[in-house]
Design a protein around this nucleic acid. Structure first.
Lengths: 186, 186
DNA sequence: TAAAGAGTTCTGTAATTACAGAAATTACTA
DNA sequence: TAGTAATTTCTGTAATTACAGAACTCTTTA
């Protein structure tokens, strides 16, 4: 019924959706996608596209595309509702799981392509006799760094959430623990 | 002299600049900014705005704004060149340091505002007697999660690079080390 | 197998963002 | 302190991206 979220009834829930929506910009997803994600994250039961469309006041086609993107990130999934032929969607509600999915996506979209791009450059650089050694060195350091991060990312993504949680809660205590054995360098 | 990077002379260096430039899109900075950053990262000596402008074929004004943004991220800094009144710029070349600066910026731009936005929502939610308890719970979990990550981030940003490096290189070995004492949950 | 429902893809427009070039400002120099 | 070099800010345009609504396709039901 409501075509657009009414400001006067701005419940905590709709405020969350609105906030999340425009934070999406910072995070690299558009407002529609972020709003839909927020809405589904706070929905107790799965919603169909029509419900999302009317609840948020965004076009049906836009909802369709946005849902596809969110499915691509594995942040939501189709949830069949018995006796209803329309597709319903529900969000992953475990925040750690959510974060891991986003991390996975970012690794694939940001880190992996960077590594392969730099590999190309390095390959080329090594055939250039006139290249300044410092330039070569910097490229190599960047490559080494990205590879380390990539590997680490990959490993962390396979650590059970509970342990990750523990690890983070410990924070920098882990460092002291590590360096009990090691020497006090840097 | 060259107004624009010549494809035929696409050295490894300029290829790097080009790649880095359009990867910038993924990372949330525009092409100009990313290209300038790459150019400075690979420059052995600091460059002035005019050099950057002609080397990359982008407008002087654009260079000026982009430099300001990069300075804001602390990825480059002014480097005075004796006997030259023009401002010269040089990039941070330590890749770990670079990553920490970016992480710092992202924390400030992505995580911190998210936490404060959700705080607002939670505050409001707690005044709503009719709110679904599950909705409240999900908001709280999100808030708790972001706070944990934020704290962890803040701590990691103060860990010396060498130790961070060690930590990452160890990767998931850290987990086993941690859980030697702990119970086998999850 | 027609009709209606649900979902997707296409097409044009609105909004945003990136950018060049001009104008204005600031900092030197003589 | 006039003149010039260097830099920044302003203004309009180009390019990109987000989006609505229409057209289309596929699926189900009668």
């Amino acid at each position: 019924m409501t075509e657009i979220l009414d400001i006067s009834d701005a419940s905590a829930k709709s405020q969350f959706v609105l906030y999340w929506g425009d934070m999406g910009g910072q995070w690299g997803v558009n407002r529609s996608v972020a709003q839909i994600h927020a809405l589904l994250f706070l929905s107790v039961s799965p919603l169909n596209a029509e419900q999302i469309s009317s609840e948020l006041g965004i076009a049906r086609s836009n909802v369709s595309n946005s849902l596809k993107e969110l499915v691509g990130w594995k942040l939501i999934r189709r949830i069949p509702v018995p006796g209803d032929r329309r597709e319903h969607f529900g969000a992953e509600t475990d925040v750690w799981e959510m974060a891991m999915r986003i991390a996975q996506g970012r690794k694939e979209r940001e880190i992996d392509p960077a590594i392969s791009a730099i590999s190309d450059c390095l390959e080329k650089a090594e055939t250039e006799p006139e290249i300044h050694p410092e330039v070569l060195k910097r490229m190599q350091e960047m490559q080494a760094f990205l590879t380390t991060v990539d590997t680490w990312y990959g490993q962390m993504l396979n650590v059970p959430k509970s342990k990750l949680n523990l690890l983070m809660k410990m924070g920098n205590k882990v460092i002291s623990l590590l360096t009990l054995t090691g020497k006090k360098s840097e």
